[in-house]
Amino acid sequence: MSVRGIRGAITVDANEEQPILNATIELLNSIVEENGILPDDICSVFVTVTSDLDETFPARAIRQMKGWELVPLMCALEVPVKGSLERCIRLMVLINTDKTQAEIRHVYLGGAQVLRPDLSKS
């Protein structure tokens, strides 16, 4: 068994608590569904946000999900590169799995599809 990283990102329309929490849940649920994983498979989740999202911690949404209470979570600010995508939440989900790197499905939703158009779903 290996530890694999699953990347994902999503944008929100406003720096408001509920849109941030909702987007975080939408992104994580998409990652889980696309990769067929359970909370017990998760090593940890690293969450970053752009500096324009400061109304809440996205990890709050994950912590409230059934079965995710014991998953280690960490939030941080994304590197503030000039001209980079605004109002963006990114996840790095580390999982224990027998899947190969090629079998991992990364998820980019909403405006974050511009980050990795090769991996984005319409």
Rank of each mutant, 00 (worst) to 15 (best):
M1I: 09
S2M: 12
V3L: 10
V3G: 02
R4E: 15
G5L: 13
G5Q: 14
I6Q: 07
I6P: 11
I6K: 08
I6C: 09
G8F: 07
A9I: 08
A9M: 06
I10A: 02
V12N: 01
V12A: 03
D13S: 14
A14Y: 05
A14N: 04
A14V: 08
N15V: 04
N15P: 03
E17R: 15
E17M: 10
Q18V: 06
Q18L: 10
P19N: 04
L21P: 01
L21F: 08
A23Q: 09
A23F: 07
T24Q: 07
I25T: 14
I25M: 04
E26D: 13
E26H: 08
E26S: 15
L27E: 05
L28C: 05
L28H: 02
E33A: 08
E33T: 04
E33Q: 03
E34W: 02
E34Q: 14
G36W: 09
I37M: 11
L38A: 11
L38W: 00
D40A: 13
D41P: 01
I42H: 06
I42E: 07
C43A: 13
S44N: 13
F46P: 00
F46W: 09
T48C: 13
T48H: 10
V49E: 07
T50S: 15
D52N: 12
L53Q: 02
E55L: 04
E55S: 14
P58L: 11
P58N: 08
A61W: 01
I62M: 04
I62R: 09
I62S: 07
Q64A: 15
Q64F: 04
Q64T: 07
Q64D: 14
M65C: 05
M65S: 06
K66R: 11
K66Y: 09
K66I: 13
G67W: 05
E69T: 05
L70N: 13
V71N: 04
P72D: 03
L73F: 13
M74R: 15
C75F: 12
C75A: 08
A76Y: 12
A76V: 07
L77P: 00
E78T: 14
E78N: 12
V79L: 10
P80K: 12
V81C: 02
K82L: 06
G83Y: 01
S84Q: 10
E86F: 01
E86Y: 00
E86S: 09
C88Y: 04
I95N: 07
N96D: 09
N96T: 14
N96S: 12
D98C: 05
K99N: 07
T100G: 14
A102T: 11
A102L: 08
E103T: 03
I104V: 15
V107F: 01
G111L: 04
G111A: 05
A112K: 10
A112E: 10
Q113H: 00
Q113N: 00
R116E: 11
P117H: 06
D118W: 03
K121W: 05
S122L: 03
